[in-house]
Design a protein around this nucleic acid. Structure first.
Lengths: 347, 347
DNA sequence: ATTAGCACTCGACACTTTAGAGTGCTAACA
DNA sequence: TGTTAGCACTCTAAAGTGTCGAGTGCTAAT
């Protein structure tokens, strides 16, 4: 479906103006503000056509037109010229990071906050998945005669700990032994894989002491398989209160309630970019989550050393500044990937 | 300042009715609904007195009266009869906990959510402070030749980890040695104390190897002193959207913005109960946080084996159901203390 | 001291009016 | 044939108007 050049220009003008003003835009406004070289009357005709084609719609008879989902889609796909950020802008954004960055969690958190700040929309960010990482090191640290700490370190720097009870019969050497065997057997394997096979993998090695280790092994197994679900960061939810389309309390409530639910956030992030690279824009009713039918989302993924490990998203009203938001999301994911790389060196 | 019995009854009636209906209450209503045995006219006179004394106020001439902060204060201090929960209610609340409780964090989180659900206000909960706990165990776990993990375990079961870079010159035995010395010297001391004195405490012990350990020790020092600030849980913020006093978007925005700031939450929790036991009610303008002048907070602390380690709070409009909220907060802190005790056994 | 009665105040709400923005259609024009 | 000016028409938002009713304070009677 392609539009002749003037229709495109009119559509573009409508969308740009509506994004900027949030007011239905009339033929007169376009003729005045956007130099198309034709009179309002002509534009009116074009608009009637565009409406018939479904790209724009009229809230009521005596109002101007507003873009429909379809209109936005056309805009995003064909009309929008991708902005690239100037060095200055990039510098300014990067300055938003607090210099002393301590750990991955902080980096992700800050990145997310920055995105929400500069876009002025709500922003979400999904951290690396524990279970998809590979085991780097596992160790049992005895605390006293009946308690020990299981420590699991992944190759991308995540650490999980858990306290376990020990049977009376086990001693420090045994723990040392278990740690050794597990590291020897399991290092480098994905946690997802380990989850399924832990017992089998080391059953043999430890079988002679099986009666002692049994419960301990079970505990460790459990620790490894605990749903250390990927964490989802959320920031800037209140930005939506600045949007005129959310002047209605009920809408606000619906949306904020949705954003409180982790599984919804994950759905949003997964919907667009199924962990494939590239930026994905979901507009209005394209959204699968009910209650988000008048919102748009922009999602993209970030990588650690080329491997996609998480994703980033922005949620705003359908009347979103797509140009700006896309540019920001793309820059930030690029930058985040870079930071992650720096973090983990090259290993 | 004491009121005669009838004034008390009138004030009580006004407050109860206003809490229930959120409408200014008139003399007629009181005469009808609350059986004081006198006519509206008499009540009007009493109300005029109460207004002069500052316990109630009139939004505008032709409206009923609403309680002032002072009125609520009097109610909370003198008029309110403390509810105690029935066994049934308690059982019902406890059922809200998901049975499989894995760790302290989850317990706190769930507790907080439950509080917000049953009060229908926003609820906050401050976890145990890392820096006020005592060191139980510290250990360096070598990951590879130039990275190690510092693990700090406190007596109340909190674990913090951090990855550090190692100088080339250090070997596994050295790490072992450091761990040993640190445990010997520091176990049982408060982290706050350790923060200030780590270097001094073990300087001597390790001084012969000082040149090797220097940077490592610095890293460890830093890990221990890292602001592992107490975590603040927040739940049910959207409950305030149900309150008729928050039908105004700006108010909602102001309040929600406040609640997004961790330091504000901490201030709220610390303001009332300076870690002393007992329930504390802060009403309206008594609140130090600007922007919370039309809210009330109820705070209380919880204990682990008798030692106060954290606090719980509820935030709602001044027109809060104090009776119910206080009862819930008191029960929940008691219950939480119990759970914490179970968690850490008796040690 | 209490109460009934009454005049008065004021916000809530429904209704009307008005202004203005924007449209679609038609007829004239290049 | 595409473009344009002109015009009647539609519809909303905002401002103005009138009425209703809740609630009060005061006064005089009990």
């Amino acid at each position: 479906m392609t539009l002749d050049e003037r229709k495109q220009k009119v559509l573009q003008a409508i969308i740009k103006d509506y994004i900027a003003t949030a007011e239905p835009v009339g033929s007169r406004t376009i003729a005045k503000k956007y130099d198309l070289g034709v009179s309002p009357a002509t534009i009116r005709n074009e608009m009637a056509d565009l409406e018939e084609l479904g790209y724009i719609e009229q809230p009521h008879t005596s109002a101007g037109r507003i873009p429909s989902d379809r209109g936005y889609r056309y805009y995003v796909d064909c009309l929008m010229n991708k902005k690239i950020m100037s060095r200055d802008e990039e510098k300014h954004i990067i300055k938003g990071y607090q210099t002393k960055v301590k750990d991955v969690g902080t980096v992700l958190h800050q990145t997310n906050t920055i995105i929400s700040n500069i876009t002025n929309y709500a922003s979400l960010l999904m951290g690396p998945q524990f279970s998809k990482s590979n085991l780097r090191h596992v160790q049992l640290v005895p605390l006293d005669h009946n308690k020990a700490l299981v420590i699991v370190v992944t190759d991308n720097g995540m650490v999980q700990t858990r306290m376990i009870d020990l049977p009376q019969t086990i001693n420090e050497e045994d723990l040392q032994k278990i740690s050794q065997v597990m590291n020897a057997k399991l290092q480098g394997l994905s946690l997802e894989h380990i989850k399924r096979t832990l017992i089998n993998e080391i059953y043999f090695e430890l079988s002679k002491h099986k009666h002692i280790f049994d419960t301990t092994m079970e505990m460790i197994q459990e620790t490894l398989s605990l749903d250390h679900e990927e964490k989802v960061y959320l920031a800037g939810t209140l930005n939506i209160l600045n949007q005129p389309e959310f002047r209605d309390l009920n809408r606000v409530k619906t949306l904020l309630s949705l954003l409180e639910q982790d599984n919804v956030l994950k759905e949003i992030l997964n919907e667009g970019s199924q962990m494939e690279e590239g930026t994905h824009v979901t507009i209005g009713a394209e959204n699968k989550v009910t209650g988000l039918k008048d919102c748009s989302t922009i999602t993209a993924t970030y990588q650690i050393n080329g491997r996609t490990v998480g994703s980033v998203g922005v949620i705003g009203p359908t009347r979103m500044d797509y140009e700006k938001a896309v540019a920001i999301v793309e820059f930030m994911t690029r930058h985040l990937s870079q930071m992650m790389k720096d973090f983990y060196g090259g290993s």
